[in-house]
Amino acid sequence: MLETIAFYLFATVLTLSALRVITARNPVHSVLFLILAFFNAAGLFVLLGAEFVAMILVIVYVGAVAVLFLFVVMMLDINFVEMRKGATRYMPLGVLLGGVLLTELTMLFGAWKFSPQIAQNAASPTPAIDSVENTHAIGAILYTDYVFIFQVSGLVLLVAMIGAIVLTHRVRAGVRHQKVSDQVNRKISDSMDIQSIKPGSGA
């Protein structure tokens, strides 16, 4: 009974906050509702017994991705009246794009085929949820059957990161950077000269 109540609570809040993400006028509110949605999705994962996925969802999406979203959105200087003016003008285009995406996804779903490898993996016996922790289970399958895909997705992310850095990095001339090694390697004799001066003679 308790689990059912929890499920409906999480599911309701998740759906409502997902709706508010696209209907809220203030983009910062949208991001905050997005965070609430992520959090409730994590709650649903916990109910499923997938506590590892739930925690990773919170750490990665709530703790890192959404922080950067919020960071960017807060710095935007948006005129809300101006923004709403364009909404009706671009509505047909938006509907068209959405329709195309939906058709594509439907076609893709219709033509879905499983590779023979997957069938073989799926046929291998799944241990009961109380005999093995799902962290161990995910580790055991991720680093054996799916190690290639895992590594490739890591590489893709690395390339994306390097690409972003290459695109935005610029070398500015005339900027003085602090060189810590230079400062540490400085000796007293580099900057100071101790002289003994006799009284009455001057430097």
Binding site: E51, F52, M55, I59, V62, G63, V67, L70, T135
Partner: peptide, 25 residues
């Protein structure tokens, strides 16, 4: 006494930043 206690702690402490960002904004 949950199985992913370390991850839970890490997740909660990484959410602490929201209080500060929300306050600042």
């Amino acid at each position: 006494d949950i199985n992913v206690g370390v991850l839970y702690l890490f997740a909660i402490s990484s959410m602490g930043v929201y209080g500060i960002i929300m306050a600042g904004w």
